[in-house]
C-alpha cells in the first residue's frame, strides 16, 4: 500500500524535475519526497486511529489502576500502561509524586517512567513505516520488558533511599476527574487534537531527519558504513548507544536516518541501540527528575538504560 509514495516520488523526481536516474542528486531527492509524504500520511492516519484508543487511558486512571496491586502485577501493568498512556514530559514530576503518594512502589513507578517515553506513538508508527512490522513488534516488546526489569531492579536494590526525602511526606488530594473527558464527540476531538498537536511538534524534526537521511542515502557510500559501523566492529553497539545520549531528538527525526543506516548495511541491533538511546535517555528529562530523585538515582537510571540498550543491540545483531 505504501508503494504509492514510491510512485509519487518517481513521478516528481524523474518526470516533473526531469532528473536522470542513477544519479546521486536524484537518489537524494527521490528519498526526500518519498519519505516526507509517507511519514506525514502515516502520522496523520495512524495517530488519529490511535488517538481514539488513547482517549480511554490517562495518567490519572493509571494511578488508580496501579494502586494496591502486588509488586509483580504492578511492574507488568505499569510497563504495559506506560506503552499506551500519553503524557507530556513536563508532567513527569507531578506524576511521579502522585504515584508514590498513592502508595505505588518506586519500582512500579519507574517501570511506567521507563516504558512510557520509549514506546510512544510517533516511534511506533514511523518504525512500522521504515523498518517493517517485525522490528516494530520487537521494539515495543523490548520497551515493555525493560520497564518491567528496571522496576524490578529498582525495588530489589531498595532504591527508595535515592528519592528526595521530602517527596514521601507530600499528601495529594484525590485527583479531580474532569467532566469534559467522555463521549464520542469528545473522543473524536481528542484524536483530531492529537494529530494536529503531534504534527505541529514533529514536522521540523521529520524534515531535518529525512533531509539528513536523503543526504546519507545519496552521497555516503555503503562501504563507509560497513567499515565504520558494520557487523565486524565490536564497539559499534556501545558507541551507538553512547552517541545517542547527548543527541536529544524526537523519534520523528531519527527514524528516517535509521532507515537509511539499515539499507546501507548497518546491523539492526546497532540501529536499535542508537534509536532507543536517543529516545529514552535525554538530559533535559534528567534535569526535570532531579527535583525528586537524588543524583545517584539518575546515574543508576541512565546507567541501567545504557547497559540494557547495549545488551539489546548485541542480542539483535546476534539473532539477525
Amino acid at each position: 500500500m505504501l508503494e504509492v509514495f514510491t510512485k509519487l516520488a518517481d513521478v516528481i523526481t524523474y518526470d516533473a524535475l526531469s532528473l536522470a536516474r542513477e544519479n546521486k542528486l536524484a537518489d537524494a531527492v527521490h528519498f526526500f519526497i518519498e519519505d516526507t509524504t509517507k511519514i506525514f500520511f502515516l502520522l496523520a492516519v495512524m495517530i488519529y486511529a490511535i488517538g481514539f484508543g488513547r482517549s480511554y487511558v490517562s495518567p490519572e486512571k493509571v494511578r488508580l489502576w496501579l494502586t494496591g496491586k502486588t509488586r509483580f502485577t504492578g511492574y507488568v501493568l505499569a510497563a504495559l500502561l506506560g506503552a499506551v498512556t500519553p503524557f507530556c514530559s513536563c508532567s513527569s514530576v507531578p506524576l511521579f509524586i502522585a504515584f508514590l503518594s498513592a502508595g505505588i512502589p518506586l519500582g512500579v513507578t519507574m517501570a511506567f517512567l521507563i516504558t512510557s517515553p520509549l514506546v510512544n506513538e510517533v516511534a511506533v508508527v514511523l518504525l512500522g513505516g521504515a523498518l517493517g512490522l517485525t522490528f516494530t513488534i520487537a521494539y515495543v516488546t523490548i520497551g515493555i520488558v525493560l520497564g518491567i526489569l528496571g522496576g524490578f531492579v529498582t525495588d530489589a536494590f531498595k532504591l527508595d533511599r535515592w528519592v528526595e526525602p521530602y517527596v514521601w511526606n507530600i499528601k495529594m488530594p484525590s485527583p479531580a476527574t474532569v467532566d469534559e473527558a467522555s463521549g464520542w464527540k469528545w473522543r473524536e476531538r481528542y484524536a483530531r487534537g492529537e494529530v494536529i498537536d503531534i504534527i505541529k511538534r514533529v514536522w521540523l524534526y521529520v524534515l531535518i531527519g529525512v533531509g539528513l537521511g536523503a543526504g546519507l542515502h545519496g552521497y555516503v557510500p555503503k562501504e563507509w558504513f560497513l567499515a565504520n559501523a558494520g557487523a565486524d566492529n565490536p564497539f559499534a553497539v556501545p558507541l551507538a548507544a553512547l552517541a545517542g545520549i547527548p543527541l536529544y531528538a524526537n523519534a520523528a527525526g531519527i527514524i528516517p536516518v535509521a532507515e537509511v543506516l539499515l539499507n546501507k548495511g548497518v546491523p539492526i541491533g546497532t540501529i536499535l541501540a542508537f534509536i532507543m538511546s536517543i529516545v529514552a535517555i535525554s538530559l533535559p528529562e534528567m534535569f526535570i527528575l532531579r527535583k525528586v530523585l537524588k543524583p545517584q538515582m539518575l546515574v543508576f537510571f541512565a546507567g541501567f538504560l545504557f547497559v540494557s540498550f547495549v545488551g539489546v543491540g548485541y542480542l539483535f545483531n546476534f539473532i539477525f
Binding site: S58, P59, C88, P94, S174, P175, A176
Partner: peptide, 9 residues
C-alpha cells in the same frame, strides 16, 4: 501542582 490535585499539566 500536586497539592491542587493535579497530576497532568
Amino acid at each position: 501542582i500536586i497539592q491542587h490535585g493535579v497530576m497532568t499539566t
